[in-house]
């Protein structure tokens, strides 16, 4: 109740303008505009960490989010997943504004944060199965919740295979190494690889990966983008993948776009 009132009273003043394409043509519903950010500002601990950010990411494009530690990469990614409230401005994913219904916006994105979201006491399959359910990508109705539907099991196996951890499928999460757990987190991307409208938000994926995993991830992202998917990937230094756009945070208040 409280939160409903809070949300209702806290719609930005220009919420209604935002949904009308005549005033903000860039944020109107569009199939090939994956992400549109308009004058975004995020505050952290009493100061503005990011401000005046404008950005457009088209279908099939990769955005590289570059910056030093503490420059706001994670904050921006989490804000795009609506985990952190905006200070100012607005954004839309696939034309769905951030003020829209929670479920509608969440169906447009997929976040791999710096935590791997593996359930420590479960094995790899069960953990991914839970994630698949949370991501609402279970297609077939299931009769017995105890059993994993064949369709989902196949999807999970393909995902594990794509990241080279298929032999670990029955292994318990807490017995995996840090790199293996990271691969498991990235396998979540593959679960939804056929839903190319979902914007991938990936936080520093290349950090804990070995060469093999990095190459696999590059392949996954490249193939996803060739089918019209888009991704925002953060990191520092360079990326083993050629991005279509690079946003360097921390250089000036709004970041530097190239």
């Amino acid at each position: 109740m409280m939160l409903v009132t809070s949300i209702l009273t806290h719609l930005p003043h220009d919420f209604w303008q935002m949904t009308s394409p005549s005033i903000h043509p860039s944020i109107g519903p569009s199939i090939d505009l994956r992400l549109a950010i308009n004058d975004l500002a995020i505050s952290r601990e009493g100061g503005l960490l990011i401000q005046g950010l404008n950005l457009e990411l088209k279908a099939g494009q990769v955005l590289f989010l570059r910056g030093a530690n503490g420059s706001g990469k994670t904050t921006l990614l989490r804000a795009l997943a609506k985990l952190i409230p905006l200070h100012h401005g607005q954004y839309a994913i696939n034309g769905v504004p951030h003020t829209a219904d929670h479920a509608a916006l969440m169906r447009q994105l997929l976040l791999v944060g710096h935590r791997n979201a593996g359930v420590e006491h479960l094995n790899v399959i069960s953990s991914l199965r839970l994630m698949a359910s949370l991501m609402n990508i279970e297609a077939s109705p299931e009769k017995i919740p105890e059993k994993i539907p064949e369709q989902i099991r196949k999807k999970i196996m393909t995902s594990l295979d794509a990241l080279g951890i298929k032999p670990l499928a029955e292994r318990q999460i807490s017995h995996l190494s840090a790199g293996q757990q990271r691969r498991l987190a990235l396998a979540r991307l593959m679960l939804a690889a056929d839903m190319t409208h979902r914007l991938w938000l990936i936080d520093e994926p290349f950090n804990a990966l070995d060469d093999d995993a990095a190459r696999r991830l590059c392949d996954i992202i490249t193939s996803y983008c060739s089918q019209g998917g888009s991704a925002v990937i953060s990191g520092h230094g360079t990326m083993p993948l050629t991005p279509d756009m690079t946003l360097t945070l921390g250089t000036s208040p709004s970041g530097e776009l190239s």
């Binding site: 479920a103 969440m106 710096h114 839970l130 609402n136």
Partner: peptide, 16 residues
Amino acid sequence: IAKDGVLEQMLISPTP
């Protein structure tokens, strides 16, 4: 599950 990031995934689930 907070430390592992499972709660984060629950928050960004389309399910309320």
